[in-house]
Design a protein around this nucleic acid. Sequence first.
DNA 1: CTTTGTGCAAACGGTTTGCAACCTA
DNA 2: TAGGTTGCAAACCGTTTGCACAAAG
Lengths: 131, 131
Amino acid sequence: MIMTITMPSIRITTQKIKILEYLWSVNHHPTADEIYSEVKKDLPAISLATVYRNLHSLAEEGDIQKIEVNKEFRFDGDISPHQHCVCKKCGNISEIFSKDIARHSMQNAETEDFEPHSVKTIFHGICRECK
Amino acid sequence: MIMTITMPSIRITTQKIKILEYLWSVNHHPTADEIYSEVKKDLPAISLATVYRNLHSLAEEGDIQKIEVNKEFRFDGDISPHQHCVCKKCGNISEIFSKDIARHSMQNAETEDFEPHSVKTIFHGICRECK
DNA sequence: CTTTGTGCAAACGGTTTGCAACCTA
DNA sequence: TAGGTTGCAAACCGTTTGCACAAAG
């Protein structure tokens, strides 16, 4: 008896490529809806559901980062470890690229009760423009 | 001409008190819905909307903490600075009380582009029971 | 040719809101 | 008694899902 193990292969589609390219081209943290309307300019037939499905799988694969702010997901094409700064006034999200913060937090989080795999550090405050 | 400045006064209601007491009595991080059904045992007529409104104002006043995990808010009666650990498997939330993590993060976050007021540090990993 | 991904539209689920009645201060 | 608060039900809105068709490998 021959047993074949088939692994669920992931396909590369035009939609997924366009979404990724858009996220790479941009220097802020768009919502799914914003990604949808931008990619729609190139791919008029694309649906919101497809955008969501791709964003989900891309995040699962670790190709993009998913940030949750105010009941809404935002997406980041930059997967290097960094922290986010949310402005209380305008809602804008900027970044801090500190290896120290992540490392220090992780080191101090290790206990016998919990095994940390990753940290998310989000600062709330006021951005330069709103100050 | 006499000008009177009326400040919007906040009232203390039975509902608000019960919600606060429940949050203080509990050592986990309930959802609005869980708070609702618990408080409902004492106050059968209370509505979910009231729970949400009170949780919102309590969080605004700084009397409780609001944590956002998986598109859902969770509430914490403990307002001392601490970090949260979310288990990837069971979804349970535990805590770490490290003054160091918050302090170190804040110190490293200060730039000319952003003025941090608070940090939220969330670890994702595996809890003791799921290990 | 098989199997994963897509578009559409309807469903979902946590949260918010409008409004009249109610209750604090 | 004034105006903040409540209960109810309906609206909201970002996200997910079922299904038949399209397209990638």
